[in-house]
């Protein structure tokens, strides 16, 4: 098992290497994230401005600020470039070249994106968090919640990988993956609760968001971080739902990948 995994470490290191060549990339990703966070944070802070204590959805001003800021940072962790790179490789036909290597393409992609996630967390996530901590008051989480949040974040990264891989694989179907990616980005951001917490959505919309897998990408981890759950069973429920979706989507990815390869062979690459 370890020997098999070791085969994939070069993909992880080379992924990091190619990333580090663009040092400006991190500064810009950070700026993008900060800008994105600022729009939602200030929009919702304006809503809570007139309400002291707990406002709509049971959030305080600090809570909602923390929620939206961390939501944006989670989104940065989920931007692993898998969707555009897979789409581009499918489009250019480079996927055929990948097939001759003795490794599984989706697994290789997963390892290649891990360092991207790590680098984004350290070089983008932390500075943006620090910047906002200076500007606006935030809620400090309890240590236990922080632990739960960490586990939940790891699962959310896996979820995001699957979603992005599926998005990238639409390259087998259409050349305009740009449009598909834009739809994915908007829909995921909305139903994950990145722009509006699920607690502030009207009943039917919230119900829909709760059964979709995207909820586990932002709203799930943040529910745990802010301690917005009823006892341990409730917290475990969030994690179990995430894990179940992660497993389900992984299986879906594997099945669709096989199907796509069959199609590729028929088309002759």
């Amino acid at each position: 098992m370890t020997a098999r995994l070791r085969r994939y470490t070069p993909f992880a290191t080379s992924g990091l290497q190619s990333l580090l060549q663009y040092r400006s990339m991190f500064a810009m990703t950070a700026m993008t994230a900060a800008a994105g966070a600022a729009v939602t944070v200030f929009l919702w802070r304006a809503v809570y401005a007139g309400t002291p204590g707990r406002g709509p959805g049971g959030f305080t001003v600090e809570d909602i600020t923390t929620y939206l800021l961390v939501a944006q940072i989670l989104q940065v962790l989920h931007t692993n470039r898998v969707d555009d790179e897979v789409a581009a490789e499918v489009y250019r036909g480079d996927v055929a070249v990948m097939l001759v290597r003795p490794v599984s393409y989706p697994v290789m992609r997963f390892f290649a994106c891990l360092p991207v996630v790590g680098a984004n967390a350290v070089l983008v996530g932390l500075p943006v968090l620090g910047l906002f901590a200076l500007l606006v008051p935030l809620t400090a989480p309890r240590p236990a919640d922080l632990l739960l949040f960490t586990v939940s974040t790891a699962l959310s990264v896996l979820l995001a990988f699957c979603v992005n891989l599926l998005t990238g694989m639409t390259g087998f179907l259409t050349t305009n993956t740009w449009g598909v990616r834009m739809v994915k980005q908007s829909v995921v951001a909305f139903f994950a609760g990145q722009l509006v917490p699920l607690a502030l959505m009207p009943g039917p919309l919230a119900a829909l968001a709760k059964v979709l897998p995207f909820r586990g990408m932002v709203d799930g981890p943040l529910t745990l971080l802010l301690g917005r759950y009823d006892g341990w069973t409730d917290a475990a429920g969030v994690l179990v739902q995430q894990a179940a979706w992660a497993a389900g989507l992984s299986l879906l990815c594997a099945a669709l990948w096989r199907a796509a390869l069959g199609r590729l062979e028929v088309l002759g690459g």
């Binding site: 290191t13 990091l16 290497q17 580090l20 060549q21 040092r23």
Partner: peptide
């Protein structure tokens, strides 16, 4: 000038 390897990339950073 770019140095090869992972450490090289880090130092060009």
């Amino acid at each position: 000038e770019r140095k090869p390897g992972l450490l090289g990339s880090l130092s060009t950073l």
